[in-house]
């Protein structure tokens, strides 16, 4: 886990996972995202920050085509995942979402047992050949979600009976179980208390080992703690994108500086 001295962090360049160019999103007549260009690196935590309604969640939802489920939303521009445009006609959004997993703001475990919650994705995508393999996937995912020790004795208990922080870690484990390449997190800690938040942040840092993680957050401390790259959105524009340390200590744009010092928000 990173401490609060972002400047001293080692900066290394990594392979680019998502290459987004000239991205526009419209909700009906509203132009919600304007000309956004972002490169999201592999095995990196990228944080999207900005005031409410600035479009950061909207942009996040473009990355796994969740905006398709909203009738009035229209997306333009190119979103290249490993060089392939995810809005291409040949791409099946359902397959894409298996590759680009998502964790939501409010913990939303299914009203099923803990085991079935985790096994949901693998079952749909046929990842396990038999029960033993499925058991293995469930255990591995729960360990990844840092919740195995708390629930290993009650896998048959309903997932909805867990505490808020446990539910959110369960949802992360559920997303991890489908072996995604990118994990999108939409304010994953906003419904959690500080202790559960710390646990989830620790988990995000561990997930960086294997995935590219994109996190939307309202807490600038959180962005500073968990991310290596930070993007600042304002009124639908991407104002500034760069190393987290640089954004928080030496922002280039005056708007970024105003936001992180608390003058606009």
């Amino acid at each position: 886990m990173n401490d609060m001295r972002p400047l001293e962090r080692a900066v290394e360049t990594k392979e680019i996972k998502f290459e987004c160019r000239d991205c526009q999103v419209y909700y009906g007549d509203t132009h919600a995202i304007k000309d956004v260009n972002v490169d999201i690196e592999d095995k990196t935590v990228t944080a999207f920050i900005g005031p409410s309604g600035c479009g950061k969640s909207t942009f996040l939802r473009c990355l796994n085509r969740m905006n398709d489920t909203i009738d009035i939303a229209r997306v333009e521009g190119s979103f290249l995942l490993d060089g392939e445009n995810i809005y291409d006609k040949r791409v099946d959004p359902v397959q894409l979402r298996a590759k680009v997993g998502m964790v939501f703001q409010k913990p939303n475990p299914f009203p099923k047992s803990i085991y079935d919650n985790i096994a949901y994705g693998p079952r749909i995508h046929g990842l396990a050949k038999n029960k033993a393999e499925l058991d293995e996937i469930v255990e591995k995912s729960l360990r990844r979600g840092a919740i195995w020790n708390e629930v290993k004795d009650r896998l048959d208990a309903p997932g909805t009976g867990l505490s808020g922080g446990q539910q959110q870690r369960l949802c992360i484990a559920r997303a991890v179980a489908t072996e995604p390449e990118v994990l999108l997190m939409d304010e994953p800690c906003s419904a959690l208390d500080p202790i559960a938040t710390a646990q989830v942040e620790e988990l995000i840092d561990e997930l960086r080992e294997s995935y590219s993680v994109v996190i939307v957050t309202h807490s600038m401390q959180q962005a500073a703690r968990v991310s290596q790259k930070t993007a600042f959105f304002h009124l639908g524009n991407l104002v500034e994108f760069g190393e987290t340390g640089q954004i928080f200590t030496n922002p280039k744009d005056p708007r970024t500086e105003s936001y992180i010092t608390g003058r606009i928000g």
Partner: peptide
Amino acid sequence: PQAMRDGSYGLGATQSETIKQVVLPA
């Protein structure tokens, strides 16, 4: 709740899988 459906779509489930396995049981 819509959050149930979103959770399922976010895992790469189709609409009918979501209905059959998440919405109807709920």
